[in-house]
Design a protein around this nucleic acid. Sequence first.
DNA 1: TCTGTTTTTGGAACCGTTTCCATTTCCTTA
DNA 2: TAAGGAAATGGAAACGGTTCCAAAAACAGA
Lengths: 321, 321
Amino acid sequence: MEKKLTITDIANIAQVAKSTVSRYLNGGPVSTKTREKIDKVVIENNYQPNTFAQSLKQKVNHTVGVIVPRLDSTAQVEMLRGLDAANKNDTFLIVNTYQSIERELAAIEKLRTQNVGGLIVLTANLNDELRAALADFDAPVVIQGQEEPSFHRVVMNDLASGTIVGEFAASLSPKNVLLLKIDETKDWAIGHDRFLNIQKRLSSTHITVVNSNFSIAEAKVVAQKAMQSQTFDLIIGATDRITIGALQAGLAMHQNAQYIGFGKSDLSTTVTPNLTSFEYDFYQTGKQIYKLFRMVRDNKPLNKIRIVIDGQLTIRDSTKK
Amino acid sequence: MEKKLTITDIANIAQVAKSTVSRYLNGGPVSTKTREKIDKVVIENNYQPNTFAQSLKQKVNHTVGVIVPRLDSTAQVEMLRGLDAANKNDTFLIVNTYQSIERELAAIEKLRTQNVGGLIVLTANLNDELRAALADFDAPVVIQGQEEPSFHRVVMNDLASGTIVGEFAASLSPKNVLLLKIDETKDWAIGHDRFLNIQKRLSSTHITVVNSNFSIAEAKVVAQKAMQSQTFDLIIGATDRITIGALQAGLAMHQNAQYIGFGKSDLSTTVTPNLTSFEYDFYQTGKQIYKLFRMVRDNKPLNKIRIVIDGQLTIRDSTKK
DNA sequence: TCTGTTTTTGGAACCGTTTCCATTTCCTTA
DNA sequence: TAAGGAAATGGAAACGGTTCCAAAAACAGA
C-alpha cells in the first residue's frame, strides 16, 4: 500500500533527468551506463508508469472496448475466450448491454469518453442510430454477427447453414415441423438468415413458425403453447437453449418429436436425448475477430473486410428415432 | 470523426475561464447565467471530458477491475449484472481467469499496471500467493465467495444453507444418498462449508460422496459411475448444473431418485422434473458487493467488513415422489 | 590536439483536467 | 449610497508522463 513512485522520483534516485527515464522506458537512445543505473532503480522500486498520464499524452492506447449483448450465452463467452487467447497486449473493456439498444448506445458513448483504442462489437441487432454511432466512432471498429457492409465484420454463414440443416431436415421426411425463431427485428442473422433456407427446403412440408427469445424458459412456454393445438414430429430451434426449452416442453407433453438446434454448448450433449445441432466454433471465431481487429488497426484498410465462418452439422440422438 | 474538443475550447467559446467550466461540470458554484451559457456550448458541441486527464488529476480513479473465475455460470453473470445495476460512475474491467490461479495472478499484475482504482474478486479459490498479491494491492479490494478474514468480503451463508438443506433432506427419510461435491481445495466454501451440515444432519443415513467439477458433462459422468454400483434415492449436487448432470444420468439409468441443487438458474425450472434448489439471489449479491466496495473506497475502514448473504430453499417437483 | 559529426542528455513545454487562492462581482443591510 | 460579507470567477499551479530542442559529451578522422 505504499505510495506510488513517479517517473520524477525514479529520475531523482537515479540522478538523471526524467526525460531520460522516459526514453529508457520507451526504447529511446540511452547509453549502456545510464541504462544500467536506471534499470537498477526501476527494478528495486518495482516502478510502473501511470497509464493515465501516458494515454493523456500519447494518442494510441491499448484499451479495446468489447460490447457484448449477453453473457449468459455459450457462444458469446466462447468468443470472449477466443479474444483473450489471441490477444497480444491489449486490455479488453467488456461491457454487457443486456440486449438493450439504449444501453449499447450509452456504452459506446462511455467508451468514447474513455478514449478506447478500438471497439469490438458482438452484435445481435443494429438500428440506424447505432450504425451512426459506430460509424463515426473515433477508433477502429469491428463487428461480429450481422452482415453490415459498412463495417469490418466477422459473420457466421447462416444462409449456408440453413441450407444444410434444411436438407437434413427434409431427409427426415417430417409431417409437421415447428420452427422456433428469434424475431428478425431483434436479430436479423439468426432470425432471418438462419431460417431462410430451412423454410425453402421444407417448402413442401407443413410448417409452423413462432418466435421466442433466447431463454430456455421462454422457449419452453412458447413451444408448449404451439404444441397444445398440434403434434409435431420435428422441431428446429434457433439456438441450443431454445431447442432445449422445446425439448422440455415436448417431453412433458409426451410429443414424440425429433429436435435440431444451433450452437455449441455443453448442454447439447447433456440433455437426454443428446441434441443434434449445427455447430459453429465460437472460440476460433473469437480469435478471428481479434486478428481482424489488429489488421484493421494496424493497416487502416480502405475497404471493409468481411470474414465468414462456416460450421458443421453434428448428428446426435435427438434425430434418431 | 472530428477532433475532440477540450475544456479550453469550451471555455473559449463560452467566454469563461476553464476553471469555471470545470466547476460547472463537477457541480461547483456557478451562477445561473454562466451555467446557461456553458450548457449551450457543451450541448451544441457534445463535449465529453477526457477521462485520462481526469483520472490523472483526481486521486480516485473510476476504473475497477473485476476478476471472475468463469463466465459460464449463472451465479457469476448475475452478480455482474448486479454490479452493473448498482454502479454509479465506475467502469468495470472484467477479467475472466478461467479458474486458473496463474491467470488470476497475471490479471492482478496487469490490473495493477493499469492503475485500476480497486479490485472486486469473485473467487473460488485462494492460495497464499494470491492472498499476498491481493493483500498488497495498492487500491481497495473486495472479495466474494470465500471466508477470508483479512479481506473485505461478501460471503454466502453456506453453513446455514447446509443445515437447512440437510434438515429437509433428512425429512425425506432417504435410504441411500449421493452427494456430488466440489473438491474443497478448489472451492472451500462450496466444497466444504456447503456440505458440512448436510452430512451432519444425514449422519444416520448411508452417504456416498464424490467430487465433480462445475460442468454438467463431468457431473453426469461422475454420477453415472457412482450409480453403476448402487441405487440412490436422494442426490444432492453442489450446484444446479451439477445436479442436472446427475439428473440426466439418473434418468438414463432409470434410477428413481429425488434431487436437490444449489443456485438460482433458469435451468432449475426448465428441466423435467423441476429442480428443488437452495437459492441465493446473486443479482442482489452483486449489488451488495458494489455497495461494500464503495463503502471501502470512500471510508477506508480500519477493520475488515463482512457481509453475509442468506438464501432459501425452494421446493419443486424433483423432491416430490 | 583540434575540428566536425554523432550520440546522449537535460530543460522546458505540453497533454486536458482539477484545485487552490486571490480577485472581482453581487447582494444585503445600515 | 457606502460598507460588509457571500458568491462567483479567473489565473496559475499541479497531476505524471512524452517530446522537442538545444547543449553537452563522446567519438572519429586528420
